[in-house]
Amino acid sequence: MNRLKDKVAIVTGGARGIGRAVCEVFSDEGAKVIAVDIVSVLYSKEWVEGYKANLCSNDDLTKLVEYVKEKYGKIDILVNNAGITKDSLIEKMSEEMWDDVININLKAVFNITKLIAPVMKMNGKGSIINISSVVGEYGNVGQSNYAATKAGIIGLTKSWAKEFSRKGEDIRVNSVAPGYTNTEMMATVPEKVLNDIKEKTMLKRLGDPKEIANAILFLASEESSYITGQLLSVNGGLRL
């Protein structure tokens, strides 16, 4: 239970769902975790610290990185998990709906990684895990904004894996694409739609947040020390 002993991890979107599960699993494995979210985050885990920040604010992100550097002296792991949905068919999708999803799901990933990558380079080591989605792999009706961001995450992952290792640094960048998972985001999905998703999934069920978190743990740990630039699909065999 010490796969991340003495590691310092930042997890965005850490207040709930997959992000919260990641924070708890990382803490159980010995990491000191900073759970970043737009809302206040409270944890019973000893080594999980909530940090309130707006991921669309460069000022907030700069303060976050400086705070972690000052308190812990390093950043070993970054999990870019925060994301939102604003679904609509393209004919009814407003520019605001498009921009809001792009800004949180994609631009914020760029902004925080731009700040943290140099810290990892100074240490010569690090692991970045970007959370994509099965929708980023296959697309989905009414989610063109969300699909675009999650497909973009895959492109960023592959580009950064090359960029961050080109001078010999051991900085790995990978992506996880979860399938449909039992989180708060799924609470408004009609039961008929959920049943249809389960039927399209080889394992005939939705995922559990901890199952996704365990895959992220693998990519954060030294068990995946020879893996970079990859997309790990964790979707129970779903095909949209």
Results as ranks from 00 to 15, higher is better:
residue 138 Y to W: 11
residue 118 P to F: 01
residue 189 V to Y: 01
residue 77 I to E: 10
residue 237 G to F: 12
residue 162 K to Y: 03
residue 57 S to Q: 11
residue 139 G to R: 11
residue 169 E to M: 03
residue 75 I to F: 08
residue 35 A to F: 01
residue 205 R to Y: 07
residue 40 S to K: 14
residue 109 V to G: 05
residue 111 N to W: 10
residue 217 L to P: 04
residue 106 L to W: 08
residue 112 I to M: 13
residue 205 R to F: 07
residue 51 Y to I: 03
residue 56 C to R: 15
residue 36 V to T: 05
residue 112 I to N: 07
residue 10 I to C: 03
residue 220 A to E: 01
residue 234 V to F: 00
residue 229 G to L: 09
residue 118 P to W: 00
residue 79 V to P: 08
residue 113 T to N: 09
residue 11 V to Y: 01
residue 55 L to T: 05
residue 183 T to C: 09
residue 239 R to D: 09
residue 79 V to G: 12
residue 13 G to Q: 00
residue 184 E to D: 15
residue 24 E to W: 00
residue 213 A to K: 07
residue 156 L to K: 09
residue 95 E to H: 13
residue 229 G to S: 07
residue 111 N to D: 15
residue 73 G to R: 09
residue 133 S to T: 10
residue 93 M to T: 11
residue 50 G to S: 11
residue 219 L to M: 09
residue 131 I to R: 02
residue 189 V to W: 01
residue 181 T to S: 05
residue 156 L to T: 09
residue 178 P to G: 05
residue 87 D to A: 15
residue 115 L to V: 13
residue 33 V to Q: 05
residue 3 R to W: 01
residue 93 M to V: 13
residue 2 N to H: 04
residue 189 V to G: 00
residue 113 T to H: 02
residue 131 I to G: 04
residue 141 V to T: 14
residue 14 G to S: 02
residue 182 N to S: 12
residue 70 E to P: 00
residue 118 P to H: 03
residue 172 R to T: 08
residue 135 V to F: 12
residue 220 A to D: 02
residue 38 I to S: 11
residue 190 P to M: 04
residue 237 G to P: 09
residue 47 W to N: 14
residue 123 N to I: 06
residue 187 A to E: 14
residue 111 N to T: 10
residue 194 L to K: 15
residue 75 I to H: 08
residue 109 V to D: 02
residue 222 E to P: 03
residue 136 G to Y: 09
